[in-house]
Amino acid sequence: MRPLLEIENLRVTFPTARGDIDVVRGVSFTLGRERLGIVGESGSGKSMTGRSILKLVRAPGRATADKLAFDGIDLSTRSEKQMRAIRGARISMVMQDPKFSLNPVMTIGEQIAEALLTHKRLPRREVNDRVHAMLESVRITDPERVARLYPHEVSGGMGQRVMIAMMLIPEPDLLIADEPTSALDVSVQAQVLDIIDELVRRKGMGLIFISHDLNLVSSYCDRILVMNTGEVVEECRAGELMNATHPYTRGLIASIPRLDETRDELPVLDRSAWAKA
């Protein structure tokens, strides 16, 4: 079967006063209909990798790749207009913070409907039914009421579920979730991830889950890429993360405190060891 996404030698470059800086340096991977996790610290280039798949790297940043193909479509040659037909409909992205990513002056129902109507013409009644059904599938119990609310009237967890609903209603083939739960509470985190997980499995979609939380990624993904300073330093099956070999990955794992913590001091990463000159 043809992979859903193929990326070869992806580079993202930002010009600065002191010359160009590569924030992503030659990342390559392929993705089938599976759940791939990308982990790394702030500045490791994980979010830029996600954004460049949708060609959302803003100028003056530039993304280039030897190959950037989604379901056989060469994304690198697509125009902005052609990309708009792909964004949302085929590939969609859940952003980090619902407070900043939802439109504050549109009701939730209108926003979700807009995501659908951008790509399809449908009668109003069917749109309403689908919006309500989608809200139900993200476990919002009274969709009719919630659809009439504005984003500031709902909690963070509900806002994030609304965003998931909006991203999944056009039934995309690939969902990119960029830190979908970092702005949420632990107890709500699990709930939101369970919803993403269930919908992704049921619809047989591909998922790219970008996060800095190793534990979270290893419990919700099949495969993991560990990124540091713009490069993939390690790739492994999620279950084998604890046997990771790269010192950076090992350092990250060791620095997480445990519930039954006995260490007097947590090991700290020695960044100089593998920072590139």
Partner: peptide, 23 residues
């Protein structure tokens, strides 16, 4: 907490969520 000996159901729930993510 380290032994997992919290008594209240709600505390245990928090502990389970926490343990579920630390594999």
């Amino acid at each position: 907490l380290k032994r997992g000996d919290l008594k209240e159901p709600y505390s245990r729930e928090l502990m389970q969520i926490s343990a579920a993510h630390a594999s």
